[in-house]
Computed example of a mutant assay.
Amino acid sequence: MTEPVPSPSDTARSRRRILYADTAACVLLAATAALLVIARGMATHGLLSTVMNIVAQACAAGAVLLLVAALWRRPGSGPFLLGPVLSEREDPERVRAQRVMRALYWKLIILRSVVGIIVLQAALTAISAILPL
């Protein structure tokens, strides 16, 4: 049995969700940059505080790389790395809908990971600031 062809409204809804995910990625990119500026401008006292601050800055670099990868992925950017090989007999609407869903899935997975990294970065920065007190 084959799957039913997704309706154009489902595809449009997924495209809107991709736009929302891109907006969230831009906001997270700004938050990461702000935390990086705070971490770089903070005076650290002691070895543990310095190490935590360096790890927080490394988290920022990793989050930025992941966010750029999330923003880079577009629904029409070609075949998905681990996706099935599509035959020529496939319906073009189904192929287009699958690409949109894969791009949305890709973005949401990366955004979920980045949120965790940013929370870790913020916690390390806060602990690094409070530790010398």
Rank of each mutant, 00 (worst) to 15 (best):
M1P: 04
M1F: 09
T2L: 04
P6S: 01
P8M: 00
S9D: 15
T11V: 15
A12L: 06
A12H: 08
R13W: 01
L19Y: 09
L19D: 15
D22C: 02
T23K: 02
A24P: 04
C26F: 04
L28R: 02
A33E: 09
L35W: 09
G41I: 08
A43E: 15
H45Q: 15
G46C: 04
G46L: 10
L48M: 12
T50A: 08
V51P: 00
M52E: 06
A56C: 07
C59Y: 14
C59E: 09
A60V: 05
A61Q: 14
A63Y: 00
L65I: 08
L66P: 07
L67T: 04
L67P: 05
L67C: 11
A69F: 05
A70E: 00
A70V: 05
P75M: 04
G76T: 09
G76H: 08
S77R: 04
L82P: 00
L82N: 10
P84M: 12
P92M: 02
V95I: 06
A97N: 12
V100A: 08
W106H: 12
I109T: 15
I110R: 02
L111T: 13
L111F: 14
V115Q: 05
I117V: 12
I117Y: 03
Q121R: 06
A122T: 11
L124E: 02
T125L: 07
A126N: 05
I130P: 01
P132M: 11
P132L: 05
L133A: 14
